[in-house]
Design a protein around this nucleic acid. Structure first.
Length: 723
DNA sequence: GTTTTGTAGATTTTT
DNA sequence: TCTACAAAAC
């Protein structure tokens, strides 16, 4: 094969090896910023163009819809032709496709609907109540976690054998939940995977069909696969096809939700003659940033081993700022961003990363104060909004009357006199007769087992749904949704509400009609009804968050959501023991290593400049904490780190000081100490001045010692010296 | 049916 | 400290 082929020109040796490899199983260990997506895309194009595989015979799996659509787009761009018949999508999307195609084989109704995690939680909550369990002792969240965890491991309720009474209860909730879903024709996210797995496992002809079809299977972000996803890939790969997995064990940050890094090792054990290729040349960050990040991740014990390098510049050292408190931290960051902007740089090139969402607030306040536009990732997405879910619930009932989750949601929204008492009676009847709520309600109306007023209300609802269905039979999706939000009274209900929030809700409902109008069926969805396809789309691709993407704004997000992105200037905030690494992960070595990988992910987001910040004092949930600087900072080589100590006097926030007037401040200064100053104590060692109380020789001073934590000392007794 | 009051609980997230 | 959600009062 010639090196001059356009598909491998401009690639480095390793990338070229991966792209042009002979048929076989392959593991690509792709470090951060090593051109992983590029390799994947070129590999697919190579297989099609050079090896003459039909797009039809290729399966590419990703974790997010965004990654999937980007990959398809880039492959098409490279080939200059459409690859519509190539299967490329998320695990869930592909599983869904299998289930739609083989719904009879897996015992699902043709119009089955997808339950998102919000729907799932509501359903579980209701079930717990109906089982007469104490919902304080059995929180729906916990049960949901349990059920999904089991499904991710490939376990049905009947597979679980337990003598732990606690788990027995959870198991019984699992059973009841599954029964309820099956009756209503509902499939949750984990169920998509589990059922598709069972389909392939139990049905030889279906399995062999797909094994014959997919000659090449490529899986992205393999370190994030869980047990069922791995088992899935195993089933799809037979004697005549080849699996390529791409991933980075150092970027595995989703172990807490069932991802198994071990799957990479497992892959090497399970598949014969795996070619391993390491992509270690980094095209993103400066040499200094890479050196710092490499040093941090080197502290993890279980690694496949990889060292990033670059032939680019060293760049500036990593900055470390020790803030006085979280407000000071935010102020410092805003100051640095102003500097950056004044040098003619764009705000959208700046990312503020934090460990937990709660940390964003102080940062937001500071940005707001400085009139600096910002954008937060990780909010509610379009199809997750309350008003949208209400409207979708009506559509779901039109598609499938037995969808209990949808019925519960809207039977009394807007209010139509079907209160909790009535609903409870319907629920009970449904349970007793093993029916759906809709069936039970119908039966109760005709048998007159409901009292007058309630019966009228329920009958009116049933009639409303049936009429709506009859009269909209021929409607397009757009007209149907418009009709639904009007005739259901949803639109009027939100229009009657006051406030900005209600206004956006009305707008969102109209936007939904818009989305319905513009919705086009994919080729593979042609056998589905447009309504079912749209509902599946809404559940599987919750849509973009609402934000003005075009405005030049600072980007705020958690470290987790930063994965896969890159920014010229990155701030990692709250780099403190107890915050990052988080308190909960500190006593378990495995979880601590995951935090370290998260740190590695954060650092490797930075292209030119990386700034770490921490606060000596931080208020969390109304409590003051004196955290030490994160252990990860100590793992960064000193020569790559530049420590910015407090140079100027910080304006002390009034809420922290009992004597915050200028005079007392001045008096304090005369003691010879400054807030934020570093001092040395003969017994306690080094620390930072945090606060003071009183004036004169009896004044006390608060110091956060590196070794022993925060202490109040009387200035005249404490033998402090500056250091 | 709506407003008020009380209380638990508060990493990380995609599908 | 704040928020969300559920029970209690109106």
């Amino acid at each position: 094969m010639s090196d001059s082929h356009p598909l491998i020109a401009g690639l480095n040796d390793k990338q070229r090896q991966a792209v042009s490899a002979e048929d076989g199983h392959m593991l690509v260990l792709a470090g951060a910023g090593s051109g992983k997506t590029r390799v994947l895309v070129h590999r697919i194009a190579w297989l099609i163009q050079q090896c003459h595989y039909s797009p039809f015979s290729i399966l590419a799996v990703t974790f997010t819809n965004k990654a999937a659509s980007e990959m398809r787009g880039r492959v098409e761009q490279l080939l200059g032709s459409s690859v519509r018949n190539m299967w490329i999508g998320t695990f869930h999307g592909l599983a869904h496709r299998l289930l739609r195609a083989h719904y009879m084989d897996v015992g699902l109704p043709q119009n089955f609907q997808i339950l998102d995690s919000d729907d799932q939680q509501r359903l579980i909550k209701r079930l717990i109540k109906s089982m007469n369990l104490d919902d304080k002792r059995w929180p729906a969240k916990q049960a949901q976690w349990y059920i999904n965890g089991k499904k991710d491991e490939g376990l049905r309720a009947h597979h679980i054998e337990t003598y732990d009474p606690n788990e027995q209860t959870l198991k019984s909730i699992y059973e009841a939940y599954q029964e309820s879903c099956d009756r209503a024709g509902l499939v949750d996210f984990a169920e998509l995977l589990l059922r598709a797995h069972e389909l392939l496992r139990n049905n030889t002809s279906v399995r062999e069909h797909y094994q014959r079809r997919f000659r090449h299977i490529l899986v992205d972000e393999f370190q994030d696969t869980n047990s069922i996803q791995y088992a899935w890939i195993r089933l799809l790969s037979g004697a005549q096809n080849y699996v390529t997995i791409v991933g980075d064990d150092d970027q595995s940050i989703y172990g807490w939700r069932g991802a198994r890094v071990e799957n990479i090792q497992q892959f090497m054990d399970d598949y014969p003659a795996v070619t391993t290729i390491r992509l270690e040349q980094n095209y993103r960050s400066t040499g200094t940033i890479l050196r710092a990040a490499n040093a941090v991740i080197a502290n993890n014990a279980e690694r496949l081993g990889k060292d990033l390098w670059t032939d680019g510049n060293d760049g500036e050292p990593v900055s470390l700022y020790a803030a006085f408190n979280e407000m000071d931290e935010a102020r410092y960051i805003v100051g640095r961003i102003e500097e950056w902007r004044d040098q003619g740089n764009a705000l959208q090139d700046v990312a503020l990363l934090y460990r937990s969402n709660a940390q964003s607030r102080v940062l937001e306040e500071a940005l707001l104060h400085a009139r600096m536009p910002y954008r937060i990732y990780g909010g509610l997405r379009f199809f997750e909004r309350q008003e949208i879910k209400d409207a979708l619930a009506y559509l779901r009932i039109l598609a499938n009357r037995d969808d209990d989750a949808a019925l519960e949601r809207v039977i009394n929204t807007p209010t139509r006199g079907i209160g909790n008492r009535t609903l409870d009676m319907v629920r009970q009847t449904a349970r007793e007769n093993q029916q759906s709520l809709w069936q039970a309600a119908n039966a109760m109306v005709s048998q007159k087992s409901l009292a007058g007023r309630a019966r009228n209300a329920v009958a009116a609802f049933i009639e409303f749904v049936e009429n709506l269905d009859n009269e909209t039979e021929e409607f397009t999706l757009g007209r149907l949704s418009d009709e639904v939000i009007r005739r259901s009274g949803l639109l009027a209900m939100y229009e009657a509400e006051k406030g900005e929030k209600a206004e956006t809700r009305v707008e969102n409902l109209k936007e939904l009609v818009n989305a319905c109008q513009n919705f086009n069926l994919d080729e593979n969805e042609e056998q589905m009804s447009p309504l079912n396809a749209f509902l599946a789309h809404a559940a599987l691709e919750a849509g973009e968050e609402q934000a003005d993407e075009y405005q030049d704004a600072v980007q705020l997000m958690t470290l987790h959501s930063a994965k896969g992105l890159e920014f010229p200037l990155v701030f990692m905030t709250g780099v403190e023991e107890g915050v990052f690494p988080s308190q909960q992960s500190m006593d378990e070595p495995g979880r601590l290593e995951e935090e370290r990988r998260l740190c590695y992910v954060g650092m490797t987001r930075a292209m030119q400049k990386l700034v770490l910040t921490y606060a000596e004092q931080r208020r969390i949930y109304g409590q003051e904490f004196f955290h030490k600087v994160s252990r990860f900072v100590a793992e960064i080589p000193a020569d790559t780190l530049h420590e910015v100590r407090l140079q100027t006097q910080v304006q002390k926030p009034s809420s922290y000081s009992r004597f915050n007037n200028a005079a007392s401040h001045e008096a304090f200064e005369q003691t010879g100490y400054q807030l934020g100053q570093r001092v040395r104590h003969p017994k306690f060692g080094d620390g930072t001045v945090l606060n003071y109380e009183g004036t004169g020789p009896q004044s006390r001073i608060q110091i956060n010692f590196d070794q022993v934590g925060s202490k109040w000392l009387v200035v005249s007794y404490a033998r402090l010296e500056p250091c």
